[in-house]
């Protein structure tokens, strides 16, 4: 899980152009939206694309998104249970 979390942080930094940030700057459980890292709705769409492109996961139920994208740890947990590649 540790490796997946680190890989995911680096993929998020690259996909979302978080230029001045490194994996070490993102706490595993820190909120990604709102007061935490401060991602916006376009970033949420990029994360959905990232899950499909890198892990073959299509979000079947958009309502799940809020829970899945809460933090890097919650995304990694979802990936580990649903990944197709």
């Amino acid at each position: 899980m540790e490796n997946l979390i680190l890989q995911l942080k680096n993929q998020i930094i690259e996909a979302l152009n978080l230029e001045d940030m490194t994996a070490a700057d993102i706490d595993d459980n820190e909120a990604l939206f709102g007061d935490g890292i401060g991602l916006d709705s376009i970033d949420a769409l990029e994360l959905i694309v990232l899950l499909e492109r890198e892990y073959g996961i299509k979000l079947a139920n958009p309502a799940e998104g809020k829970e899945i994208f809460k933090s890097v740890a919650s995304i990694a947990d979802y990936i580990s249970r649903n990944r197709k590649k």
Partner: peptide, 9 residues
């Protein structure tokens, strides 16, 4: 393909 929302905007 995987369209990029961040580019599209």
């Amino acid at each position: 393909y995987f369209p990029s929302p961040a580019l599209f905007v």
